[in-house]
Write a protein that binds this DNA or RNA. Structure first.
Lengths: 223, 223
DNA sequence: ACCTGAACACCGTTCAAGT
DNA sequence: ACCTGAACACCGTTCAAGT
């Protein structure tokens, strides 16, 4: 019989899932420029055009790759209090972006797409559970989401840069901090002083401090 | 004499400023994909390679274009209180991104570059002036910057999408809101209810509500 | 010093043709 | 239904050659 099982021309059939898996591997290895339909086709032992039978375009492919990690990240334990669940979601996304730095840039330009909606929904439900009045729920949720994606993405970009450039030098001294330190101290007093502190900072703790700042702003409004 | 003034082969000499100006025109007309070295060369009546004598690469060109609008936007009136100046910077950047929607995507992936440093510095000086203790200045400034760029960028992307797609239909009904309304209401209760409200929202007021949320979080920490 | 424009080394996407 | 791979219509960037 000519069943799929008896036909072993490839390791397995070309599916949307296998394509996304291979795309993640390429993205993790060499970032967004490393994801190419030609490289993808070669790794999947197929033609470049075959991928288009399962995937609409590159943008959708990258978003589907993001979604693979966004889904689990926003799944907070259901028994916690809203504040704790928001913190858990923030940590989940921060860690996902650190492990897969290409997510930051992809999510920053994906307004309204599925991975963003998942994050919006997860945070919005907790904002509502906190008791924020309905007129403020939108801006409150937007504040949390933008903070998490913005700061998480910038941290991911920084640590990726540090990983690439100074492999043997003290890893704390990021390339960005060095460039900032060379700025004119009269024109950029704040940035210069931050450049000195940046390498000693605990990025994860700073990230959570910002989350708590927003959460305490929310708490004040609820009274 | 063969002075530049007597040589009128081109309207004016090719300078970095003229290149950036032409780049802004192309970006405003057709977004980031519209900015091409070939299109730029044609408009400047020169060869594609000539641009590289004045500009390092496309990334720098786009960042220089952003900087043209970031500089004025972060120039808040010096006599206001820190809180008012932060609000003025936020409004300035929001308006700049609305007028030039390509800025949102460009600034989102420009960690550490000059336009971002300008914003960081302007906000950081006011955070400091508010009396935030030095250990919290970094995360506080990051929270403000990420919120402004994140929400401002998403708003710009949404209004650009609405401008492109439904030119004659009620402009308030954005394409994103329509897509959200079609989501499963059981799985996405928050997003669905926001989709109904989104067209009636005043995006500018919502944006400022978020800024005030963060500012009140800061005020609570100081007091 | 500054400019030209052909050439290089790629891209994402399409599509007639196959199985 | 699913896959092939050549072809199309582009890119950013470089560089020998000009002025």
């Amino acid at each position: 019989m000519n069943t799929p099982a008896s036909n072993h021309r490839r390791a397995s059939a070309l599916t949307r899932e296998r394509i996304i898996g291979a795309a993640v591997a390429l993205l993790d290895e060499s970032g967004e420029p490393g994801l190419t339909f030609r490289a993808l086709a070669q790794r999947l032992e197929t033609g470049a055009g075959a991928i288009y039978w399962h995937i609409d375009n590159k943008r959708d492919l990258v978003l589907a790759a993001c979604d693979l990690f966004v889904g689990p990240a926003v799944q907070a334990p259901a028994d916690d209090a809203p504040g704790a669940r928001i913190r858990a979601i923030a940590i989940g996304l921060f860690d996902a972006m650190e492990a897969h730095p290409w997510m930051g840039a992809a999510l920053a330009v994906a307004a309204g797409e599925l991975p963003l909606v998942r994050i919006l929904e997860a945070l919005g439900q907790q904002v509502r559970a906190l008791g924020v009045d309905s007129a403020s729920q939108w801006s409150t949720t937007q504040a949390l989401m933008s903070y998490i994606l913005g700061v998480g993405g910038q941290h991911a970009a920084r640590s990726q840069l540090a990983r690439q450039q100074n492999l043997q030098r003290t890893p704390a001294l990021t390339e960005v901090a060095q460039r900032w330190a060379e700025l004119d101290a009269d024109e950029y007093p704040f940035t210069c002083s931050m450049a000195a502190q940046l390498p000693h900072h605990d990025d994860h703790a700073d990230f959570m401090a910002g989350v708590d700042l927003i959460l305490s702003g929310i708490a004040q409004r609820i009274g």
